[in-house]
Amino acid sequence: MPNIIKNGIVIDDDWKTVTLTGDDTPETIKLPVGRLLVPARVWRARRAELIGREYEHGWALGVRLTAEEGPEAIATDVDDFTVIAVEFSRFADGRGYSTARLLRTRYGYCGELRATGDVLRDQLFYLQRVGFDAFALRADKNSEDAQASLADFTAAYQSAADLSSSLQRRATATRLAA
């Protein structure tokens, strides 16, 4: 079973990823049993069915956003999801950072926020600061090695999703919670 880093530790991951390929359409793609991370298009097309599966089988809901899809794609639905995954097609494409930040600080999403795709250890620290708490590393990378990078820095100059109290004034650089 693949693993992910979740809240700083490596755990097995039993979520299945549904991907639209070739002739697949959101309306017709076959949904396997179990907990699924579905593209936002599938969520929109088959919302009732997905919610029904959760009621019937207890399979929690997960959705996947591409780099192009901002949080607006699921803005009114964030409370329906147990996992929101943000896809990085290239690690150097930074749009997902803003998506995460907005999901946490503007849309009030408190569930698992997972970085998937081209996710590498040297980006983990910043990903964590904008609100990701789960990381599915690229398949050829080792999650155990990568964990250490979450502690690369022990302070921060600016607020982000991890330091977002609106009362907090920037009297000095802020120490990150250990």
């Binding site: 950072y97 600061r129 904008v130 820095f153 100059y157 650089a173």
Partner: peptide, 11 residues
Amino acid sequence: QWSSFHPEFAY
């Protein structure tokens, strides 16, 4: 200071 290690704007 604000821009140094800004997590959202590094990429």
